[in-house]
Design a protein around this nucleic acid. Structure first.
Length: 858
RNA sequence: GGCGUGGUGGCGGAAUGGUAGACGCGCAGGUCUCAAAAACCUGUGAAGAUAACACUUCGUGAGAGUUCGAGUCUCUCCCACGCCACCA
């Protein structure tokens, strides 16, 4: 390489490393959290450190968030951009198991590698305030949160049928079961009855739903949250249960949203898990009880998957008992069936086979009579014998006593009134949302900070009267540290690894002082991440050792100004965080009164959330099982961080993600080289650039365009505009004056932080007149440039000439004449092409759009 | 089955109802070079037409509609993807 070439080529590796070091040494991105005036909390979802290290999907998300943060900083905000590691949990533990390294050891390795990479990608992270969920300093407060939940009655224990993954040997939350398979490993999930800790998130279902309308989130995510909460207004109808002779046995309550069709109810079905079944086993005939028992057993063994896979082919068994439909006096046979799930409603469903497809299918199998009570738009009033006749959505009532002739939608309310008046039913609101299952029979998580005392339980004593024998670990004794044990592998018996360690679980009862045992389950990873955003601003604060988050700092910095992350967390993480926030608020841990009412967002942790797109590779989401994970390291080495950042952002709008193909990287790398050459030549002592009018106009336009596009995260078009600008410069002088170069570097700075910092320092060195800028030495401390509207106006405007809406010609119009239809029309008529198309025809109408179009309609 | 998102050149993608394909990749040709790489320059939706330019027609998943004018708005259909799902 010649001297000139050496001088003119951009040595990205050297330059980028140099500035990273300087930024770090000078703590450029660390704020004084207590004194800032315009706080802007720019939060991105923290990664869980998988072992391959950071992949370009992570980098994509972080870069897109960082560009926004850098832009906001240049607009004068005090931007706090933290990063950390969500390193506890099944995902990290499974990897440790796979490679045979102890999770504690593996966490250290992953942390080192991850932070190395996170340094490389050039984001403005505050490296003095990181959070690792597996640090005792952090999970001490996760445990504290659990204790608060317990004290406020929101944590409880329940023996429940839980999702059990036989491969991961752990309990899974409903949300972690996908198509009956384990979210992590893909194995079929089984049902298992275990004592588990739950958080009563359903207590907040109404509030969680209500607040959704106040959130500035993408519509897609809001809909997902609404669906997940799944509010349903309905009625619980209680039916007397009788045997064949009419003797009363008990009662069954069914939830329904469609009581209007109740005159047509001809059977009742129970979920196999329904508690009523064990009650009646002794009452009903022996042979029938045996049949029911076998059916229940069979269902229990079947996985969730099997239960659905059997599809819509209905099965079930009769109990020999009847529910009395008090509207009609009809004795509805009572069945047990697996198409009814215990988790929703009351686990018992009243069957209206004429107007519900599942009920119809069941009635067909069981040969139950079908009664028509709705006439649809087709006017068919004949008996319902075919599935096509099952009208579910619309129509008028028939064969329904006082409802006859009334539209079904109105009938719902009328029937509810009637049932309530008679005392047969009660209106209820049901939610699809279930309580949050917190316990994990695993090793790699924060031990649940609870103590159980058998003696106290016997005596009915405990911290909470409804949970005798249970005590929370005293706050001064937190954290309950996760011990370093060798046998950390989960057992296949559902017993947690810590349950095999006496030295861990043997303790003293805080109530009576006798021997007691600690809880040996650990908590769900989603608990770790449900409050991390509260910790970040308070890391290293004066109160960091005595409080989970500093009240003063929290008041100033929360709620999070802008939250950015993947839409895949639409329901889980975002819902749990909202719940935890609401709890802390209700317990009095926040004071945002100065920030105004609910409309200003203080009822919510993330008033604004931006869902970025996903990077895919070869048409599929990056995952290690597909083997298409791309590590950014090699690309950073080859092309530099800035080129990779910009390449990722150039793939498409930030909301869309994109397909990673390394071939297109070359183009971005070339452009970086062109910028470098343009800038360094411009700064050479002998160069005295005078900018052309075109360039001056273009830079003003560029400032406007890049500002708008950055604000809306259309980074791809912002970059395209900058490329157009450099193309224009190349067509003109090929160089820029220091003034214009400065402006160009400023708008490029959020995108290419290293390159622009280097050129900025050279620009300052070259321009001796500029006074030393003291504290504001970095380009990233500068203000976003302004633009002059005066320069945005063109001297001439291209106006298109159309004939009957078809493009025929175009012309240049002076800016003075552009508003005059008369002048524009006159000029347009002179066009030969237009004359050709106009011919002898009579012009019926002329459409004139200022500065755009003149259209002759003939 | 429900909810949602999207279909534009060879590819990624641009287009307040007003010049479709900006910008980039790829490809082709050229400059430089003994040669190559790199870099730079020119061209690049399809078809027709021309010595060459000019030019003409078609073209945003399919079909209809609204409009002077539709990638953009409305309806019907097809396809792809994402999430949820025997939720009563």
């Amino acid at each position: 390489m010649s001297d000139t070439a050496q001088k003119n080529s951009y040595l990205h590796e050297k330059v980028e490393a140099k500035w990273r070091e300087i930024w770090h040494d000078k703590s450029l991105n660390t704020l004084d959290m207590e004194t800032v005036r315009k706080p802007f909390y720019n939060l991105m979802m923290f990664p869980y450190p998988s072992a391959e290290g950071l992949h370009v999907g992570n980098m994509y998300a972080f870069t897109g968030t960082d560009i926004y943060g850098r832009y906001k900083r240049m607009q004068g905000y005090d931007v706090f951009e933290p990063i950390g590691l969500d390193g506890f949990g099944i995902h990290s533990e499974n990897y440790a198991l796979k490679v045979g390294t102890h999770p504690l050891e593996q966490a250290k390795r992953s942390e080192e590698n991850f932070y190395r990479q996170l340094h490389m990608i050039g984001c403005m992270y505050d490296w003095k305030r990181t959070v690792q969920t597996y640090d005792p300093d952090y999970y001490r407060w996760t445990q504290w949160l659990f204790v608060q939940m317990f004290r406020h009655g929101l944590a409880y224990r329940s023996k429940a049928e839980v999702n059990w993954c036989p491969a991961d040997k752990t309990v899974l939350a409903d949300e972690q079961v996908i198509d009956g398979k384990c979210e992590r490993c893909g194995n079929l999930v089984e049902k298992k009855a275990l004592e588990q800790w739950f958080f009563r998130i359903t207590a907040y279902a109404g509030k969680l739903l209500e607040n959704i309308s106040s959130l500035k989130w993408s519509e897609k995510v809001l809909i997902a949250q609404r669906n997940w909460i799944g509010k349903k207004e309905g009625i619980n109808i209680t039916y007397p249960v009788v045997d064949e002779k009419g003797k009363r046995i008990g009662e069954i309550t069914c939830f329904t949203t469609r009581p209007d069709t109740n005159f047509g109810a001809t059977f009742v079905v129970l979920a196999p898990e329904h508690p009523f079944i064990s009650q009646i086993q002794a009452v009903i005939k022996k042979d029938q009880a045996a049949v029911v028992g076998r059916y229940v057993e069979k269902t229990k063994k079947a996985s969730h998957e099997d239960r659905i896979a059997r599809g819509r082919k209905k099965t079930g068994v009769a109990t020999g008992l009847y529910c009395v439909n008090q509207l009609t006096g009809y004795k509805m046979p009572l069945y047990v069936t697996d198409f009814v799930v215990m988790e929703f409603g009351t686990g018992a469903v009243v069957g209206v086979p004429g107007h519900d497809m599942r009920d119809f299918e069941f009635a067909e199998v069981m040969k139950i009579p079908v009664q028509r009570v709705v006439v649809g738009a087709d006017g068919d009033t004949s008996p319902i014998t075919k599935p096509e006749q099952v009208q579910e959505d619309e129509g008028k009532m028939i064969n329904s006593g006082f409802l006859d002739g009334i539209d079904i939608k109105r009938s719902i309310g009328l029937m509810m009134d009637h049932l309530e008046k008679k005392g047969w039913g009660k209106r209820v609101t049901m939610y699809h949302l279930r309580d949050w299952l917190i316990s994990r029979q695993r090793y790699w998580g924060p031990p649940i900070p609870m103590i159980h005392c058998v003696l106290c339980e016997k005596n009915g004593k405990g911290e909470r009267h409804d949970m005798p024998g249970w005590y929370a670990v005293l706050e001064k004794d937190l954290p309950v540290e996760l011990p370093n044990i060798k046998d950390y592998k989960p057992g296949d018996d559902g017993i947690a690894p810590l349950a095999k360690h006496k030295e861990f679980y043997e303790t003293i009862c805080p109530g009576c002082g006798s021997k007691a045992v600690r809880e040996t389950d650990v908590s769900d990873t989603f608990l770790d991440s449900s409050w991390y955003f509260l910790r970040y601003p308070s890391v290293n604060s004066k109160t960091a050792d005595t409080q989970p988050f500093d009240p003063k700092i929290t008041k100033n910095w929360l709620p999070v100004t802008m939250y950015t992350g993947g839409a895949e967390h639409s329901v889980l993480h975002l819902m749990y965080s909202r719940f935890v926030w609401m709890c802390l608020r209700d317990w009095g841990y926040f004071d945002f009164s100065a920030k105004g009412g609910p409309a200003s967002g203080w009822e919510e942790p993330f008033p604004e959330f931006y869902a970025h797109g996903l990077v895919i590779k070869d048409g599929a989401k990056m995952s290690k099982s597909k083997g298409n994970v791309v590590n950014p390291d090699e690309y950073i080495k080859l092309y530099g961080t800035d080129a990779l950042r910009m390449y990722l952002m150039f793939m498409g709008p930030f909301s869309d993600g994109g397909d990673f193909r390394d071939s297109a990287m070359e183009g971005m790398s070339r452009w970086v080289g062109r910028i470098w050459r343009m800038a360094t030549i411009s700064l050479e002592p002998g160069t005295h650039s005078k900018d052309s009018d075109k360039c001056i106009k273009a830079i003003h336009k560029l400032v406007k365009k890049v500002g708008e596009d950055t604000e809306s995260r259309h980074y791809n078009t912002a970059l395209a505009a900058m490329m157009e600008f450099t193309n224009l410069v190349a067509d003109e002088n090929g160089t820029l004056s220091p003034e214009l170069l400065k402006t160009f570097l400023l708008v490029l700075a959020p995108y290419a932080p290293h390159l622009t910092e280097e050129l900025w320092s050279r620009l300052k060195a070259a321009d001796s007149r500029r006074e030393a800028s003291g504290q504001l030495w970095s380009i990233h401390q500068q203000a976003w440039p302004g633009y002059d509207k005066h320069y945005l106006v063109e001297d001439t405007v291209t106006v298109v000439i159309q004939v009957n809406g078809k493009l025929r010609d175009s012309m240049q119009i002076d800016i003075e004449s552009v508003s005059s239809q008369e002048k524009v029309e006159a000029k347009a008529r002179l066009s030969e092409k237009v004359q050709k198309f106009l011919g002898e025809s009579k012009i019926r109408k002329v459409i004139f759009v200022r500065g755009k179009v003149i259209n002759f309609v003939i």
